[in-house]
Amino acid sequence: MFAMMENARLEALHLAQDTATGLRAIIAIHSSKLGPALGGCRYLAYPDDSSAICDAIRLAQGMSYKAALAGLAQGGGKAVLIRPPHVQSRAALFEAFGRMIESLNGRYITAMDSGTSSADMDCIAQQTRHVTSTTAAGDPSPHTAMGVYAGIRATARARLGGDDLQGLRVAIQGLGNVGYALAQQLAAAGVELFVSDLDVGRVQLAVEELGAQRVSNEELLTTPCDILVPCGLGGVLNPQTVSELHCAAVAGAANNQLASAEVADELEARGILYAPDYVINSGGLIYVALKHRGEELPAITAHLAKIGQRLTEIYAHAQADKRSPARVADALAERLLYGS
Rank of each mutant, 00 (worst) to 15 (best):
T110H: 07
T110Q: 08
D48W: 09
G339P: 06
A136E: 14
H14E: 11
N281K: 07
N177K: 12
I29K: 04
V191A: 13
C123F: 12
G162W: 09
S114D: 12
H303K: 15
P84Y: 02
G174K: 03
V203M: 06
T116Q: 04
I53K: 07
A248K: 13
Q240S: 15
L285N: 03
P298M: 03
A91G: 11
E208Q: 13
Q173S: 09
Q240T: 15
A331D: 10
L267D: 04
L273F: 08
K33T: 12
Q88K: 14
V178C: 11
V178K: 01
A60M: 09
C225R: 06
A269W: 08
E295P: 10
L69I: 11
A326Q: 00
I172V: 01
T301D: 14
L186G: 03
Q126D: 06
G234H: 09
I27E: 01
T19D: 08
N217L: 14
R99D: 10
S64C: 09
A289G: 06
G339E: 00
P239W: 09
G62M: 05
L233R: 11
T301H: 14
N256A: 08
A150P: 06
L297A: 07
A156W: 05
V87S: 11
G62I: 05
T19G: 10
R202V: 07
D139L: 10
M4L: 14
L237Q: 01
A251I: 01
V250E: 04
L38E: 04
V279Y: 01
H130F: 10
V148E: 00
A3M: 08
H130P: 09
E244T: 11
R24P: 03
L233N: 09
S50E: 14
I57Q: 03
C231Q: 01
D49E: 15
R58F: 00
R153C: 14
S141M: 13
V80C: 13
T312P: 06
S133W: 09
H14K: 09
V288H: 05
D113P: 15
E313A: 15
R214N: 12
V131K: 11
T144L: 11
Y338A: 13
A264W: 02
M63I: 06
P298E: 03
F194W: 15
V170E: 00
A111H: 03
A302D: 15
K306M: 08
R169M: 12
Y274Q: 06
S133V: 12
R129E: 08
D49P: 12
P224C: 10
A189R: 11
T312Q: 11
L332R: 08
E244K: 15
R169P: 04
V279H: 02
R157F: 06
G252C: 00
G71L: 08
S114V: 15
S103V: 15
Y274E: 01
T110R: 07
F97K: 03
A56G: 03
D18M: 14
A261L: 14
A79Y: 01
R153Y: 01
C231I: 05
E6H: 13
